[in-house]
Design a protein around this nucleic acid. Structure first.
Lengths: 342, 342
DNA sequence: CGGGATGGAGAAAGCGATTTCTCGGGGAGA
DNA sequence: TCTCCCCGAGAAATCGCTTTCTCCATCCCG
């Protein structure tokens, strides 16, 4: 606030220009026409005094501060970064700025942080993959206008912008099955993660469509370390006949790749590995990682689009789900022993 | 603003509780002692009405809104993400939130964006590696309190939190020379980047300390694509006798690694490669990337520390430079032909 | 040439809190 | 029992702007 104009107000300008504060305001906002002479004087005074209007005072009058909040569990996750970037750029185009709040994965604080952040802004973008649904529903009511990102929330008048993880996993399984894989393992994400639940539904649906395919579950996580940690279990599964791995996300896949190499398991020669999210680094991995691409920036932009509608008093926009696109790269290929087991 | 309390104000609460707005304010802020009876009534009214005080109105009175802005050239850069995360967490501990503004690398807009963002907040964290120094100096004056991140700015009363790139490059060269390398190439960053200039100074100093060493310059960039694009030139340099590569940053190094593998150049067998920044993915690369680690989150935290001092009216804190720490991993080793050329 | 319409500028009323100012009442000391 | 002091609650001023309201002067038209 105030910046270097600390202390100099619209009245100072008015006095200096010999007009009323109202006129200065008019010159500033150009709503009504004002005497060119006054305009000149005011502009000159503004320049001389180095005046900058207080945005806070304006906000108070207008009842909005052209700022939206975004709450994320972890700012270091490439997925959220991309969304934040898209949101930030889209909002900026409309003169809005984004306030970020990192909950540091502390689910218990999420609600309070979201409410606090929301209070400072006109609207809220909520990324809360771990928040229990009941809590989320309550939170959504208290923070409207709000848009939920990346998790489904049926039967509620809240716009959701997300990814069709179910379909994504199905498509990914199709890809692997198409390559000839019959035994696959899914390295799951955090147990409480809503998007992990979606992926698991995708696994189920895929199984239903491919009776001859078997998909094992291996408990994983969401970070590269988790990928490394799960490598032994993956190798074991491989020995037991699994020929392809689907990781919860790319971070896990990349960690897994690194460890598999050290364990002497060749990817994709012995084992295919696929990730999810298509983070920027995926295409630079060794081998370049096959992944399901999600339009991170576009999600952010769409979130803004919806928020803008809500802020403008429009009707609750419909939910939108992006269908992930398969990025076939080097890490997936046909299984070594053609035809494998099944 | 106003969230669902839209319309309900402190006066409503006062009326409902049968007291004056001043008393409600007192209960809310607990400055002076108030009749327990009033406290009870007010609290009950607040709960009943679902009242939440307007932070904007508060800001207007107090002259600050407990928000700081951070301006970055690219939110997708892991370095800035880490800094943002550190800043955000540190500020949150003091009840401050962070507003982000991504300039999308448009240097020309940087000044305007910074000023605008600063107006909304109490202070500013500025990451502007490409902004010409003269402009930066002018900008810094207009946006105080401000802290500059990641670039030197001598002779100005502005706190700087940064990385000692000069020393970092020297240490990295020492590492390579210690391994036996005598011919090294530096894949440079963006020409206008201040931190690239620093690195180049490091190269010069290193050369001065190791007369027997030669360091070639290869024009690069700052992103993985640049690393890929420069691979051919790197291979050529390798043919000419270069045995080790220092990339501007890890992103470039990772892109380079991916392409070198495709070109059949073995790292580190034939060529050592080192990055800078130690981004999270560096340790999961193939081979795991040797890099100079910079404390991203700590930079953000220190930036906040300084901002806090300035906001509190304290004296301009001293600049602080973090010395990067060498993370030796697999991508650097002794040159193949022991002793190499020199 | 007069009167209503028009338009532009200043005065004043908010926006929603905090904080100073003012005043009344109760407790303590004489 | 009376006075003085202190404390606590309400009234009012303030933060810096926008916007309505009011008024005056000009302009146009009959």
């Amino acid at each position: 606030m105030g910046e270097r104009s600390r202390g100099i107000t619209i009245s100072d300008v008015a006095a200096h220009a010999g007009v009323s504060p109202a006129s200065v305001s008019r010159v500033l906002n150009g709503r009504t026409s004002v005497d060119p002479d006054i305009v000149r004087k005011v502009q000159s005074s503004i320049a001389t005094l180095g005046y900058a209007p207080s945005l806070v005072a304006r906000s108070l009058v207008h009842g909005r501060n052209t700022t939206v909040a975004m709450v994320v569990p972890d700012l270091e996750n490439p997925l959220f970064q991309g969304i934040l970037k898209g949101l930030s750029l889209a909002a900026a185009a409309d003169g809005y700025r984004v306030l970020v709040a990192d909950t540091a994965e502390r689910v218990d604080d999420e609600e309070a942080i979201a409410i606090e952040a929301r209070q400072r802004c006109d609207a809220l973008v909520l990324c809360a993959p771990r928040l229990p649904e009941a809590k989320l529903r309550r939170l959504v009511e208290r923070t409207a206008p709000v848009v939920i990102v990346n998790r489904p929330l049926p039967d509620l008048d809240v716009p959701v912008v997300g990814v069709d993880y179910v379909r994504g996993i199905r498509d990914l399984v199709d890809h692997l099955v198409g390559l000839g894989h019959r035994r696959i393992a899914y390295v799951s994400g955090p147990e409480t993660s809503a998007s992990n639940a979606e992926r698991l539904r995708g696994v189920d649906e895929a199984l239903a469509m491919h009776p001859s395919v078997r998909i094992d579950l291996i408990a994983g996580g969401s970070r590269p370390e988790d990928g490394e940690a799960v490598a032994d279990a993956v190798v074991e599964a491989h020995r037991a006949g699994v020929t392809a791995i689907i990781a919860f996300n790319d971070l896990v896949a990349l960690g897994l790749l690194a460890r598999l190499r050290e364990l002497g398991v060749h990817v994709p020669g012995e084992l295919s590995v696929a990730g999810f999210d298509d983070v920027p680094m995926a295409r630079y991995a060794t081998p370049r990682l096959t992944s399901m691409s999600v339009p991170r920036a576009e999600i952010g932009a769409q979130a803004w689009e919806r928020l803008r509608t809500l802020i403008g008093g429009g009707p609750a926009p419909h939910a939108v789900l992006f269908r992930p696109r398969l990025e076939t790269r080097e890490s997936t290929t046909a299984p070594a022993a053609a035809g494998a087991s099944a």
